[in-house]
Every structure is written in structure tokens, then in C-alpha cells.
Amino acid sequence: MEHADLAAAASSVSLLSLFMQAGLIVKLVMIGLIGASVWTWAIVIDKYMSFTKAKRQFDQFEQVFWSGQSLEELYRTLAERQNSGLAAIFVAAMREWKKSFERGARSPIGLQMRIDRAMDVTISRESETYEARLGSLATIGSAGPFIGLFGTVVGIMTSFQAIAGSKSTNLAVVAPGIAEALLATAIGLVAAIPAVMAYNKFMADAGKLGARMEGFADEFSAILSRQIDEKLQPRQAAQ
């Protein structure tokens, strides 16, 4: 009998039983926090994979771009694909360039401006995809502990009410309720800490990618403006 009682008392401190003992609000908080943790890690895995992929693509594209290959050829191969990152910027700029020359551009300044716009729009669209869902990481990181704390406060409140009802202040009576309540804070911290760390890391990575795109856009804009000058001067001279 005594052994059985002891075993029951021991099992009542296990995680599952702590969860099952908890009240409805605490349970909801815990489930919500576990969901947040799942979402956090889903974002982390997704971002990690997409960022490494983006970096690899950047490197590959830069290699090809500076390899001395004709830009027209490069455009022709890339235009058929779905592009992202530097390739997307390059394709957007080239498309604008092509369109302008096909219809016969009048002013080199207007053409230059249009190309820069096209590249800026592409950069902002690309950075948006990189920073997508990082906001939810930030939210989980900052609000997770508070949600957990809320669950703890509610749990401790109910457990104190239960203590008042049982009229016993024995630690064995008090402890399970408090342990169960503290589990909510623990889950909140488990969800929040990786979220904060991942948010900081991915924001820095996204910033780096954005800077790289800006740098490429400026460089490419300089190359194109040189081309514009070269192509438009003979026309002007002819006129």
C-alpha cells in the first residue's frame, strides 16, 4: 500500500501528469506556447534553409556575372527561369534596358532612372521575402515569457485556492500545484529563448543579403550607365 502511494505521489510530479492536473487556462496557455515553439522552429528551419540557399545563389550568380560572359546571353538564359536575389535584380534591370532600347529611348537620364527604379523595386521585394515571418519570431521571443508567466500566475492562484480549500499547508500539498504552474513559465521560456536568438541572427543575415543586393545594384547600375552613354552618344553625334 505504502509503495503504491509513494509511486502515485512520484508519478504525480511527472510532466504529463503536471499538464493533466493543470486548469483549463493554464492548459490553453501551455498548448499555445507549445504551438508557438513549433512555429518558431518551423520558421528557424525554413529561414536557415532559404538563407543558405540565397547565399549560395548569390555566390554562383556573382561568379557567372564577373566571368566575362556576355550580359545578353546571361539575360537570355535567366529570363526563362524564376529568379530570386541578384539574378532577379539583374533580370529586372536588363528587362527595363531591353524595353527602353526596343522602343527607342530618347533621354539617357530617363533610362538610367527607370533602370534604377526597377532594381530598387526588385531589391525591396527580395528583402521582404527574406525578412518575412521574422516579425513573428520577435513577437514570440518578447511575448512568450509573459504568456508563460500569465499561466504561472493563474496556476498558482488556483493552487492557492485549492490549498485554502484543503486547509493544509503541508509542502507536499502545495508543491504539485506550484510545480504545475511553473511549467507554464518554463514552456514560455523554452519557446521564447530560441525565438529571440533566431530573430537576431536572421535579421543580421537578411541585412547582409540586402546590403549585398544594394551593392550589386549600384555596380550594375554603373555598368549600365556606361553602356547607355556608349550607345546613345553615336546617335546624338549622328543627329
Partner: peptide, 13 residues
């Protein structure tokens, strides 16, 4: 995203 969400779920489980 779906793949990573699934991965995350499996890891949590």
C-alpha cells in the same frame, strides 16, 4: 515552409 513546419512538429513531438 510546409516542409519546415512538418520538421518542426516532428522535432517537438
Amino acid at each position: 515552409m510546409k516542409g519546415s513546419l512538418g520538421t518542426s512538429l516532428v522535432l517537438h513531438f
